[in-house]
Amino acid sequence: MATTDLNLLFALDVLLAERSVTAAAKRLGLSPSATSRTLARLRSATGDPLLVQAGRLLAPTPYAEQLASRVHALAQEAQAVLTPVAGHIDPALLERTFTIRANEGFVALFAPALVVGIIEAAPGVRLRFAPKPNKDATPLRDGAIDLEIGTTAPSAPEVRRQLVFRDRFVGAVRLHHPLLAETMTPQLYAACGHVVASRRGIWKGPVDDALAELGLRREVVAIVPSFLDALNIARRSDLIALVPRSCIRGEDMVAQGLQAFDLPVPTPELAISAMWHPRLDADPGHRWLRQKLVAICQAA
Rank of each mutant, 00 (worst) to 15 (best):
A2S: 13
D5L: 09
L6F: 13
L9A: 12
F10Q: 13
A11H: 10
D13K: 07
D13C: 08
L15M: 08
L15K: 05
L16C: 05
S20P: 11
A23D: 15
K26M: 10
L30V: 06
S33R: 14
S36G: 12
T38W: 00
L42Q: 03
R43F: 06
A45C: 04
T46H: 09
G47H: 10
D48S: 15
A54T: 09
P60C: 08
P60H: 08
A64Q: 04
A64H: 04
V71S: 08
A75G: 09
Q76Y: 01
E77N: 11
Q79D: 03
V81G: 01
A86P: 04
D90E: 15
P91N: 03
A92P: 01
L94W: 03
L94S: 05
T99F: 11
T99P: 00
I100S: 00
G105I: 03
G105V: 01
F110Y: 15
A111R: 10
A113N: 02
R126Y: 01
A130K: 14
D136M: 10
A144P: 04
E148D: 04
A153H: 09
P154T: 03
S155T: 15
P157L: 13
R160T: 06
Q162H: 02
F165V: 13
R166Y: 01
R168T: 12
V170F: 05
V173Y: 11
R174V: 04
R174S: 11
L180E: 07
P186D: 09
L188M: 08
L188D: 08
Y189L: 13
G193Q: 09
G193K: 06
H194K: 07
V195P: 05
R200M: 06
W203A: 13
W203R: 10
W203C: 00
K204N: 05
P206A: 15
V207W: 01
A210N: 07
A210E: 09
A210M: 03
A212S: 13
E213P: 00
I223K: 06
F227Y: 14
L228H: 06
L231I: 02
N232G: 14
R235P: 04
I240S: 08
P244A: 06
P244F: 02
I248L: 15
R249H: 12
G250L: 09
G250H: 12
E251L: 11
E251M: 08
M253R: 12
A255F: 01
Q256E: 14
P266Q: 06
P266W: 05
E269W: 02
A271V: 03
A274P: 02
W276K: 00
W276Q: 00
R279H: 03
R279I: 11
L280E: 10
D281N: 14
A282D: 15
D283K: 00
L293M: 12
Q298S: 03
A299Q: 10
